[in-house]
Design a protein around this nucleic acid. Structure first.
Lengths: 201, 201
DNA sequence: GTCTATACACCGATAGAC
DNA sequence: GTCTATCGGTGTATAGAC
């Protein structure tokens, strides 16, 4: 076979691993299944990585880190806080619906990290929460609102909500119900802020 | 060894399996690990069950079904809707803190059911949601409130929230942060109901 | 019915030819 | 560097003695 730089091989294997996990689950993502997906021989795996655990560790840090759960819509102008939250969460649901295996893989990898006592999940979640926090602050500025609860607390709530919605949807795949719950959630979270505009409340 | 009725053996094995999963995770819950925990020989396993999958299937239906996530406190009297929701969610967090492995096992089993295309997770979640719905209706009655959003929608939101909080807490084990988010969540959800009492809003 | 011993598939990882 | 072939270990499941 053609000679491929190690870095490139590593990248290809990580991508292949993530695809296998998304399609078949972590428990079926053996080294053999991964190299088959990548079109490589088994030995190439251990030329690129020390062990399967090392690949998973890199997979978690790299792939989970690249997951920038967009929680705000692209166009922020002229929308109420509830609308921003609704559209943001709705956008996340669309992303989930487009590639359910991806989010299912995320959940499995998170649990794997928890069981392996890898301190990866913690850092990853801290980053999600930080990102949610920035989104919430931006949304408040944009709508002349003020959170009546410390923003990090609302951020944690928002992150928990997306995880919970993910599980619910993966189980019943009920788009209509999910949409309705997202709207209710957006309304509920928006109630934790007060508007400084006369036009509202 | 003493002769044990098959039914009793099955029950002991299911209990043992659940303990192993809680302590070490589903991936490490091999038939050997399970029989070791139950103090039996390997052959006893296959005398009681056709396969490991069959045990897991029964485990999911029986154990998950017995999980009656108590979402309301015991004493309902004289409390506001926000207080009821706060105490209910707080009680769930206490339950989680008391035995984290249990809820972690639940999550792993749910994902296993999803991957195996067992229609079990769906039914189980429908039951959780039904139970949450009843709790929400009871709480509304008790506080002379009325949900402004269809109750099943709020129920789904509540179930998603508990799942999300479970994941968050399992990852960072931050009690103070969890408590604060639960309070915020209770306030937010309560905003989806209007009170019929003059004393409130 | 319950055990020990074992079959057989698959796992992660490696040796050694090329 | 890349491959095929194989090692040692563990998994589920079963055969057969008692």
């Amino acid at each position: 076979m053609a000679r491929i730089p190690v870095e490139e091989r590593r990248e290809a294997l990580i991508d292949a691993a993530f695809r296998v996990i998304g399609e078949q689950g972590l428990s079926r993502a053996s080294t053999r299944a991964i190299v088959a997906e990548a079109g490589m021989s088994l030995a190439s795996f251990h030329y690129a990585f020390e062990s399967r655990d090392q690949l998973l560790e890199l997979l978690i840090t790299e792939v989970l880190a690249s997951e920038q759960r967009a929680i705000l819509p692209a166009d922020l102008k002229g929308k109420s806080l509830t609308e921003l939250l609704t559209e943001g969460l709705q956008g996340y649901l669309d992303h989930l619906r487009a590639d359910p295996g991806r989010e299912q893989a995320m959940l499995e990898l998170t649990q794997y990290a928890l069981r392996s006592a890898l301190p990866l999940a913690e850092g990853q979640y801290a980053q999600y929460t930080r990102f949610a926090l920035e989104s919430l602050e931006l949304a408040a500025r944009q709508t002349d609102s003020e959170w009546t609860v410390p923003t990090p607390v609302v951020a944690r709530l928002l992150v928990a909500l997306t995880d919970g919605f993910t599980i619910s949807w993966l189980i019943d795949r009920d788009d209509a119900h999910a949409r309705a719950s997202v709207e209710a959630a957006a309304t509920a979270i928006a109630s934790l802020a007060t508007s400084k505009r006369r036009s509202q409340q």
